[in-house]
């Protein structure tokens, strides 16, 4: 469904994306995860036909994003990063006009807009100008429009940035709903817990390269050790670790045995012990790309 073969993009001589290769089947949620500047938006802009790749090939729904642009555009829908709806329109007008531009009849556009606005908790404010709505509601208007499009492949570039917990949940539910309806959903985020909660597969980008591509659980398994002990202050208080990472003033120790390491760690410093997670994979991958571990 989505295939990237050695995909790369250069901006003014610098590679922001290079050697990106992965393939997913249809009807899955693909999380694109990575720190700021990892190349997530560049990848999505190439896949949504907005940006030409400098090298390599990519296919969406079986169509080449460079040679079959028109066909790709017919089967995709996207909410861009930092996208906002037109503020002098009402949510209803925005969704209906977007669906009309996608080629739907007025009757069908109205029907789907009403359905989507109800689903996203926007029906009560359907007649209010968007500029009077909260940031979370504005974001939901965008996602509702894309949801109503019923596209085969949907791209959501950091759709939950700046959202409160309620709006974030609404977006998450929508992603899962789209998947249930048979769509392939590509969600970019820099929040590992979001990618873990939503995705069937995660592609981790670090400095423009793929630092991992697998189901989230598999990526977590690749993190060394069983637990993570976070020690603030940076003192070398733990010896039996399999990997260690310094993030600001905090050291993250990846350990196999918990009780012994805990005793050594609690020595006047703030200690947090937690199971390893997808976030650790991203942290280690980013560190590795910077010439660390």
């Amino acid at each position: 469904m989505i295939v990237c073969e050695n995909l790369g993009r250069q901006f003014r001589g610098a590679w922001v994306l290079r050697g990106v290769s992965f393939a997913t089947k249809s009807g899955v949620v693909l999380g694109v995860l990575g720190p700021n500047g990892a190349g997530k938006t560049t990848l999505i802009r190439i896949l949504t036909t907005e940006l030409l790749p400098s090298e390599g090939r990519a296919f969406v729904a079986g169509f080449d994003v460079v040679r079959e642009t028109g066909r790709v555009r017919r089967v995709i829908a996207a909410v861009p990063q930092e996208g906002k709806p037109i503020d002098f329109l009402t949510p209803y007008e925005f969704v209906v006009s977007y669906l009309l531009l996608r080629g739907l009849s007025l009757r069908e556009a109205r029907r789907r807009a009403a359905e989507a606005l109800k689903q996203f908790g926007l029906w009560e404010v359907r007649g209010r100008e968007i500029e009077t709505l909260s940031g979370g509601m504005k974001r939901r208007v965008l996602v509702a429009a894309v949801f109503a499009a019923d596209a085969e492949v949907i791209f959501l570039d950091e759709p939950t940035v700046g959202l409160d917990v309620y709006s974030r949940r609404v977006v998450w539910n929508a992603v899962l709903e789209m998947k249930r309806a048979g769509a392939t959903v590509v969600v970019s985020t820099h929040h590992a817990e979001e990618a873990a909660a939503l995705s069937d597969y995660v592609v981790v980008l670090s400095r423009g390269r793929v630092a991992g591509f697998a189901p989230p659980r598999e990526l977590v398994e690749r993190v060394p050790g069983k637990y993570v002990v976070e020690v603030e202050g940076g003192a070398d208080s733990i010896a039996d670790y399999v990997a260690v990472l310094q993030v600001g003033s905090t050291k993250l120790y990846y350990v196999n045995e918990l009780p012994q390491t805990l005793q050594r760690a609690i020595n006047g410093t703030r200690v947090v012990v937690r199971p390893k997670s997808l976030e650790d994979y991203v942290l280690l991958a980013s560190h590795s790309a910077q010439g660390g571990l």
Partner: peptide, 14 residues
Amino acid sequence: VAIKYQSMLVASPT
């Protein structure tokens, strides 16, 4: 540039 509405339309049959 400001609201990225064009990006939304690029990824559509508009």
